[in-house]
Design a protein around this nucleic acid. Structure first.
Lengths: 191, 191
DNA sequence: ATTCGCGGAGTGAACATTCATTCCGGAAAA
DNA sequence: TTTTCCGGAATGAATGTTCACTCCGCGAAT
């Protein structure tokens, strides 16, 4: 097995176990076993568990940004761009429930808060995209004149909630329901 | 110290520590210390840590239900009732950040998923109230005809998100902002 | 004197991390 | 070609730490 494959195996095993059981019920030993690797080997690729967790987050983040930008038309109307991004994001989560669950774990932990703070002040791939979208909407008076954070909450809050409910099996989101949900989010933020 | 006071002290210490640091960084020893109680004493009041965590959740849940029902006018219009409940809930969270953080921890853990499943199928104090409110809205064609879960997501998702952001210090929610947020939630679910 | 609530040291299990050792592939020596 | 040697990747038992939980002796109350 090539050395980079081993690294991937470890990341994938960590994704599965942490997404399913949470950070604290995913001991290194279990990750190693699922990756078919010795426990010590993990430390040849990652300095410690924290680094592993953070690198995995970064990898997922990048993957998602790439995913939702596929087919993005930067010149379409504000509303169309919003709908595209939101729909793509929701779809991505539905298609990649492990990724979603991992990101949720990450955000609801000390790891996530620091990240979130950064995103709001500095900037970052996909957050930035949404951010300028919303700012543009406010400037054009298409979107309610509320603080960015509140707009984020109105746009993302429901999205994440329905994604979670779908993944936990409380709803079955089909194409129509996805579209209606995204539309409702838009109704929430538009003037 | 009366024996029931001791019980309260333990619950309060657990609330503080778990809200601040999470379940896994709130060891029994620390809870005991903050409650000015021996570690063993905790086990005189709670069979084990899980029981403590669940009882604390129940207590907070009851407190919130009582809180948001204050001043509730069951005969006002659907929209007014929605606004009252949502505003009261958001206010409660803002005024009791520890409660909010605890509940978030709880929901984003194996504990919470079981609870959520119950609420959707069976019924429960405050969830039930919202539930019949939304169902009534759908029946009267005031509210979008979407699955209950999705409506919940649209109504609560943003609320929880802004509460979190306020508590983490990313926004300062004043009365006006609260009202606007609740209004935006209503815009999201109304037809 | 007897009971009872209490404290906190003690216990064993689980965990992240380390490190002495094994293993393997390829280069050098024969 | 065959054998020997070597560097470093991989390993998993050992280590030290942390935790939930137990247990036993103490002091207060009766």
């Amino acid at each position: 097995m090539a050395t980079s494959e081993k690294r991937q195996e470890i990341l994938h095993a960590a994704l599965e176990l942490i997404a399913e059981h949470g950070f604290h019920d995913a001991p290194i030993a279990a990750i190693a076993e699922r990756a078919s690797v010795g426990a010590g080997t993990i430390y040849r690729y990652f300095e410690n568990k924290d680094v592993l967790i953070n690198e995995l987050f970064q990898a997922l983040h990048d993957r998602i940004c790439a995913g939702i930008l596929k087919g993005y038309a930067p010149d379409s109307s504000l509303r169309e761009r919003f709908v595209h991004l939101s729909t793509a994001l929701l779809r991505y989560f539905i298609d990649n429930p492990l990724d979603f669950r991992y990101l949720e774990q990450y955000h609801n932990s000390p790891y996530g808060v620091a990240f979130r703070r950064d995103r709001l002040l500095g900037s970052e791939g996909n957050g930035d995209l949404y951010r300028s979208l919303l700012e543009e909407g406010v400037a054009q008076q298409i979107v309610k004149d509320l603080p960015l954070v509140v707009l984020f909450a109105l746009a993302f809050g429901p999205l994440l909630a329905v994604a979670r409910d779908h993944i936990l099996g409380f709803v079955e989101l089909d194409a129509s329901l996805i579209a209606q949900t995204v539309q409702a989010c838009w109704d929430g933020i538009k003037r």
